[in-house]
Design a protein around this nucleic acid. Structure first.
Lengths: 362, 362
DNA sequence: ATGAAAGCGCTAACAG
DNA sequence: CTGTTAGCGCTTTCAT
């Protein structure tokens, strides 16, 4: 086993530029106390030799590892991978997080943790000890896990909490779930829908209740009832089936349903079809998440897009800012979610409604 | 900026166990020359203190970084992420690669490179210098990029080449593309199809021609013609549209088409529908890749599954084995791809064929 | 503004 | 089998 050494080290650069190690180090770290002429000379040597600092060595002596850990729920992530249904969550996390990291000279490390396990602390501590990350990104449903946030706070590692309002001392980021639910509801009320059902997401996720709150608020403002129009779900297709059956069994039937996940929306479409209803003619469906499947189902689903990539990028930015001691925004950073109109929504068919000219929205 | 030190170091363990640093190191690295009693004592201290070695420090002195780099094409990966179509490639790479790494005490780092760029070498060298990985996984279409393989060979970093037969000195792994194409073809010939079209993949990928070869070989063995039944494609939906139009314009029309990607298969289904043909009644379609969309299209696509996760896991295993100086298998490791039968294939309709009883295969 | 010295946590090489 | 010594490449003091 040959001992592999760094090809070009700071020493080589120092020798080549005829300066001390410190000066090179200062240039690398963009410290201010280096004369421009000196800096240029050193930079020239760096470029010439193709020198890149070793992260391991930087971490050994300094305080930064240039590593950011993105923590995700192991069980759920693996289940998604195994199902091969392409939820796109991981991809979008990497898309936003990795690229932003690269931009800032950091590196994103994707990591799984057993949230439900008592060993979370041990497991997380192991990852931290091994990697010494400069920051951690927490994702639902464990953005507020006190075991995790407590550990990070104690170790003074900056952490972003996606989908949390941030009572636990991290940097909170939310994807505007309440507003998104209002947007979805308004989209339907403006088309003339009055009985709009809502299928909740997994109660373990804080965003599930935010979405419900948004729906209720918007319905109230429109002067529409919500009693009996809310069904329980847990994001899965099967739970969507149950919830949709429950809602569509009502008399009068809802003319539209908002589902808190694409899978539950797909289940709703399937239940409707089973009952002889056509989407969107007899039932409009709006889903949450905008995962790839919304493109391939027929009709394609009108969905609330979760700006996962953008949120991950922002999380990285804020962590780096925190790490540098910069001032952070006050409350939670809200990344607004937008509605993508596809083919599953239309004005209600059987109402006396002047807007029913076109059956499908564009 | 507080200087963050390791909470528990090898020193603490050594002190706690009353032994030298070296002994602890030996226990960590599972070296054989430690007496069981001693080893147990040290292990007890490790467990008690919750000690985890710092990979930065391990890398600094030793020869291993316990990091494996998975290299992917930047342009294509980002395009996929942006399109949000959930190709699942990244997920499956992580699924297989990350979990296997975790199992072996390694960590997978997902990295993007600009293959078409002249800076590949510089870029890769930078990643290697910064991370000092113990191994690298190369993925199509750059598994055989001589700039990359040359660099890795020179630095004596073990590397796996997914989708390559390994003339460049790496560890070759292929997903049995030729056999898979034969399987797909046989699936159709056994149903009674005689005019089976084939849509090629991007010529930049070696596997594109392997698949073509398999189709030709199987057709030949069945005594069926292939002339004029092969159309160019590049994996994209649009290229699939063109290729399908070309094939279906022939007279007599093919009764089945094998597409080298799911997107091209979906395009084929759309073209068929446009021409008033019903899938699978009038045209059977088999696709390659088995990405999530095959589940959501109607009809759901019969597809050749690419065992990406399994291949990535094997790549990690082989790299670690190489790193440890173990002996590797001789030729390319072939991970067989399997056919997943869904709804897009059926016996041809207009033939005098005894097997036409059921219109759709299960 | 620049340089010299002292480690960071760990392992390779060598003793005993 | 176990311990000692000398760095790995870099950044942090502290001098100059």
């Amino acid at each position: 086993m040959a001992r592999r050494r760094q090809a070009v080290t700071i020493k080589h650069v120092a020798a080549d530029a005829g300066v001390s190690l410190q000066t090179v180090s200062r240039v690398i770290n963009k410290e201010s106390n280096v004369r421009p002429a000196m800096k240029d000379r050193v930079q020239a040597s760096i470029d010439k030799l193709g020198y890149v600092p070793s992260i391991a060595a930087q971490r050994m002596s300094g305080s930064r590892s240039y590593l950011i850990l993105a923590l995700n729920d192991r069980e759920r992530t693996i289940a998604d991978w195994r199902a091969r249904q392409g939820t796109d969550w991981v991809d979008q996390m990497l898309f936003g997080g990795m690229l932003k990291c690269a931009e800032l000279g950091y590196r994103l490390i994707f990591e799984l943790v057993d949230t439900h396990n008592d060993h979370v602390e041990r497991e997380l501590q192991a990852a931290i000890s091994a990697l010494q990350p400069d920051g951690v990104i927490l994702t639902p449903p464990h953005s507020d896990n006190p075991l995790i946030t407590g550990l990070l706070r104690k170790q003074k590692i900056p952490f972003a909490q996606i989908g949390s309002t941030g009572e636990s001392g991290g940097i909170p980021l939310i994807m505007g779930d309440e507003g998104a639910a209002r947007t979805a509801t308004r989209h339907l009320t403006e088309m003339g829908h009055e009985r709009i059902g809502f299928i909740k997401g997994d109660a373990e996720y804080a965003l599930s209740s935010w979405r419900e709150t948004g729906w209720i608020a918007e319905m109230k403002e429109a002067g529409l009832p919500t009693d009996g129009l809310c069904a329980e779900g847990d994001f899965t297709y099967d739970s969507g089936l149950r919830a949709a059956r429950q809602l569509l069994a009502r008399d009068p039937r809802p003319t539209a349903i908002i589902a808190s996940s694409d899978h539950m929306a797909m289940a709703t479409v399937d239940v409707a079809r089973e009952m002889g209803l056509e989407v969107p003619r007899d039932l409009s469906v709006v889903s949450f998440d905008n995962t790839p499947m919304t493109l391939f189902t027929r009709p394609a689903l009108t969905a609330i897009d979760q700006p996962v990539a953008q949120t991950a990028a922002l999380a990285v930015e804020l962590i780096v800012a925190a790490q540098r001691g910069e001032k952070l925004p006050e409350g939670p950073t809200i990344v607004p979610a937008t509605l993508i109109e596809r083919e599953s929504t239309a004005p209600p068919a059987r109402r006396t409604d002047t807007r029913r000219a076109s059956a499908t929205s564009q």
